[in-house]
Design a protein around this nucleic acid. Structure first.
Lengths: 128, 128
DNA sequence: ATGATTGCATTATTATCATAGTACAATATA
DNA sequence: TATATTGTACTATGATAATAATGCAATCAT
């Protein structure tokens, strides 16, 4: 897992974001067992309390549930997972375009920039 | 001016972002006088200290300079302003695509989503 | 039954952020 | 000259975040 954390936003929020992406992209499959809090915290290099807070947030969202001492599991509601995926994507697109608009780029200009990216062979750090 | 602030990120950072967008999009023109710290703080509904910090950050970037007690002015280096604009745009595009990739959308899929947006008449809250 | 693992709660400490309030030096402006 | 405005510095306070360090109840495996 990546666990690439920044210092400009609350860590627990970033953890929620990363874990949600893992679930929504299927890298953490529906119904799958989630590693223990302490384990995840160690992987991410954060305090267990911080990871615990992130996981608690995700349970409130319905993305996970916990069977007391047997551990924590990703929800099995694939429909919900996909709905959240679409929602996040939609939000990000809107936010991205709004931000570009603030910079003075029209939607058409943004579209053309991406079009250009398409034509050229674009290597960013986005493999697989 | 907009001054739409969120609670999930340091306010002074958001102020830098908003003011930079203002300059870069020409709404705060090169060489133009910037309102006083207290004035800007009142407009944005934040503490003068917070606004002061944001403005100090922007001077460090070279986007503004201050003539002691006569006030603060936007840089006149239009070339620099445009370079920063392009840089921010480039960063945002890369960040956006990387984020969408994490959600499981390929660049082509993202491109098609935007294409779809282009075809349909799209009203978001993004007017000029 | 015993020990290990699980989620979870608790307390304390440190750092950052935002605010409030005050003050001062330099300089336009009247 | 007197006044107001400018940027800037300073101290203090409260809230939030992140960490550290324990501890406990429930349950699973042995």
């Amino acid at each position: 897992m990546q666990w690439q954390l920044r210092g400009d936003r609350p860590i627990y929020q970033q953890l929620v974001e990363i874990l949600t992406e893992q679930i929504v992209s299927g890298q953490l499959a529906a119904g799958e067992k989630v590693p223990a809090v302490r384990e995840l915290a160690a992987q991410a290099g954060v305090n267990p309390n911080t990871m615990q807070r992130a996981l608690a947030d995700m349970e409130r969202e319905g993305l996970m549930h916990t069977n007391r001492t047997s551990g924590r599991y990703v929800t099995e509601d694939k429909e919900m997972i996909d709905k959240i995926r679409e929602q996040i994507a939609s939000d990000r697109i809107a936010e991205f375009l709004a931000g570009m608009s603030q910079l003075g780029f029209s939607e058409q200009e943004v579209f053309r920039l991406l079009e250009k990216r398409q034509e050229e062979g674009n290597q960013n750090g986005t493999e697989k």
